[in-house]
């Protein structure tokens, strides 16, 4: 195992530890979305998935 892999893993773990309290706060304090809100998020996500599939066809 080369040192770059270990260093990358340590950096990612440190990043997770730093972000964890923020994620917990955001989970507690985020407003709840309605089904129409989630639908307005799902539409662009589906469009992006289709767009990426289109890009893959072009490679």
């Amino acid at each position: 195992m080369d040192w770059m892999k270990i260093f990358s893993a340590l950096a990612l773990i440190m990043f997770i530890v730093i972000l964890f309290p923020r994620a917990r706060d955001m989970m507690k304090n985020s407003p709840k979305g309605t089904s129409s809100d989630w639908m307005s998020f799902a539409i662009p996500v589906v469009m992006i998935v289709l767009f990426i599939m289109f890009l893959i066809q072009l490679v």
Binding site: L12, I16, L19, A23, M26, M27, N29, S30, D37
Partner: peptide, 29 residues
């Protein structure tokens, strides 16, 4: 264009991002 408020996504995105980071750590090995 829609001027929709996406603040409800905050917690979901942060938790999703943390899970992806954990998966990335696992995939390094």
């Amino acid at each position: 264009a829609t001027r929709k408020d996406f603040s409800f996504l905050g917690g979901f995105l942060m938790v999703g991002f943390l899970l992806v980071l954990m998966a990335a750590v696992a995939n390094i090995f």
